[in-house]
Simulated scan of single mutants.
Amino acid sequence: MATPTDGDNNNEFSGVWFLDLSSGSPAVGLDSPVLMAGWKYEGWAIIDGVPVSSGTFTNVADFDDKATTTPFKGNMGDGPPFPG
């Protein structure tokens, strides 16, 4: 876990991306079917009893939607090229 999008090195247990690091390099971490037009996936976590979105996405091998805003997304770039 890490938070590469906020530049703050004191909260590195907060970042969540759907990727696989078992090879030593980031790779697709989800095996999800292609969605029909108009549908999107969305990741959720429960923090202190409150549901928090990790963003919406349609492609497991690309960034989550740029239009999605969450209070936990930093401003230091996009992070890994996977949803999260």
Rank of each mutant, 00 (worst) to 15 (best):
W44C: 06
D6P: 00
T70S: 14
M76F: 13
M76A: 11
E12H: 03
N59A: 09
P4E: 00
T69P: 01
T58P: 00
S14D: 14
P80M: 05
T70A: 07
G49M: 07
T68I: 08
E12Q: 13
F82M: 02
I47D: 02
N9F: 02
M36K: 12
T69D: 11
L21W: 08
P81H: 13
S25L: 12
G55A: 10
G43C: 09
L21T: 12
T3H: 06
G77V: 00
T58Q: 14
K66M: 03
D20E: 07
P33W: 00
T5E: 12
D6E: 11
K73S: 01
P71I: 00
F13H: 09
G49Q: 07
G43L: 06
W39N: 14
Y41P: 06
A67R: 11
L35G: 12
T68R: 10
T69W: 07
A45L: 13
T68Y: 15
G77T: 08
G79Y: 02
D31N: 14
S23L: 04
K40Y: 13
T70R: 14
E42S: 10
F72H: 09
V50W: 04
G43I: 05
F63C: 09
E12P: 00
P26Y: 05
D8I: 08
K73V: 01
W17V: 05
T56V: 00
N10W: 08
F72K: 00
L35Q: 13
G7R: 09
P26H: 04
G84M: 08
V50K: 14
Y41G: 01
P4N: 04
P33Y: 10
A45H: 02
S14F: 01
T5Q: 08
D6G: 04
F72L: 14
M1E: 11
L35T: 09
L21F: 12
V52Y: 06
G38W: 05
W44V: 07
N9M: 05
V60I: 12
A37E: 14
P71D: 08
G49D: 11
K66Y: 09
K40R: 15
V60W: 05
N9S: 08
